[in-house]
Nucleic acid binder design. Structure first.
Lengths: 234, 234
DNA sequence: GCAAAAGTGTTCTACTTACACCCATGA
DNA sequence: TCATGGGTGTAAGTAGAACACTTTTGC
């Protein structure tokens, strides 16, 4: 008995491990994803998430950051593991599992030229092209997870510039949840959390009157979380 | 430029992919984990989660179910992916990533003899031995995730017998959240969700008077979820 | 008759929701 | 002066939290 089991456990077979990055940006009131045309066979030329094989001497999350840096020029972005896709026949040809990770970037900070060089484009989330393999599934899964998480974690702030206005923040949440929010209630709610710092500057790009800029206060947020508070925005 | 990137992307190196199963049970009012003494070198004899290499012709989730079946004799258990652990040096000797999955089983249904044969034991979650590698991290992560998820998904029911009483359900939630709940409020809340079906039988194992048994109604639960309701128990 | 767990309702509070008008500014 | 988006307060409704006693039954 035990030896049968031990045998089974000892079947060691190696496989390829890839990571696919689901890169989010927020621009002109729209939530967007960065996709590119695959450069290698098979399926060359098809739209795809941006991925890479994970190297033997590389942590998986490091691989994700490497990909991100190569494509966007950005370091130190917010990135989180979504899920690992490991159906045996998900990739035609050879066995390859993929650890999907998602990144939230400040779209105005990325290197547009680099993105172009790689044949990558931003797509609005409700207008995506067909994607290869199980990438569409990954996108559906990440949207579900973000909608779930954004309620309780302030991940939205990662997508905005360092300084942002309340109307911008509201637009972002509206884009994530795909519904209109009441501006009075929204403002009341986010301000009551005490994680926003009002600045003396205004942003006048959205209106003549201008809206006050705010910064996210990570320290207060950490305190709020440590206190066990059930942060909920939407 | 582009060719440099293409080169980098094409570095294909294979690695071992394992899965570790975090197996939960609920017994005598305590939340428990199934651990076993590792049978292979290195670290033979140390306490460990139960895992296996994923085979080339096997889906990752199938590998998890295989492990579970081998150890507990159970099929068709609730199992969900937690996270993939992929630090390059997490496993001494060779590069091996691990996809952690957690399972919730009805402890009274498992095959005790099989468990014993494999040198496995149930431990209360607040009294775990030292674990190998990053398994302690996995356990901490899974507890955080379960506490998060159990608020909105009825995963608790997977740990109870098919027929259970409200006091049993409450004990389970108290074990998950490690705090006392008010029985009047708890009962009111779970019954108001309309996902429990009251049976005509009583369970008298817990008291002389006996408590009515209930069944979980998956259909109503599905409806509740589809309606977008924000299920929250604790 | 008593010990031990099951079962039940009400009040208070806090949060969410709904809702409409004035303000500041540039053109 | 007017068009545009920014900013504000209040009242009603709803859900959560706090709280203590009665019921059933085996021993």
């Amino acid at each position: 008995m035990a030896s049968a089991r031990t045998d089974l456990y000892q079947i060691k077979e190696k496989m390829y491990v890839a990571t696919d990055c689901i890169i989010f940006g927020f621009d002109s009131g729209k939530l967007k994803l960065l996709l590119f045309r695959r450069r290698v066979e098979p399926l060359r030329g098809e739209w795809s998430l941006i991925g890479s094989f994970v190297r033997l001497d590389e942590d998986i999350d490091v691989a994700g950051h490497r990909v991100l840096k190569e494509i966007t020029g950005l370091d130190k972005v917010f990135m989180q593991q979504l899920k690992t896709y490991g159906k045996k026949d998900r990739d035609p040809g050879y066995r390859c599992i993929s650890v999907a990770q998602y990144a939230l970037i400040r779209i105005e900070e990325h290197d547009e030229q680099l993105v172009e060089e790689h044949g990558a484009h931003w797509f609005e989330i409700d207008d995506l092209p067909e994607l290869i393999l199980d990438h569409r599934q990954m996108v559906d899964d990440v949207l579900a997870q973000i909608r779930q998480n954004a309620r309780y974690r302030p991940i939205g702030f990662e997508l905005l510039p360092e300084k942002f206005t309340i109307p911008q923040l509201q637009l972002l949440y509206e884009a994530i949840y795909q519904k209109k929010l009441d501006s009075r209630n929204f403002r009341k709610k986010v301000l009551s959390l005490n994680v926003l710092e009002k600045l003396d500057e205004k942003d006048r790009s959205g209106s003549k009157r201008g809206a006050f800029l705010y910064k996210f206060n990570y320290k207060n947020y950490q305190q709020l979380m440590d206190s066990g508070y059930n942060f909920e925005i939407v």
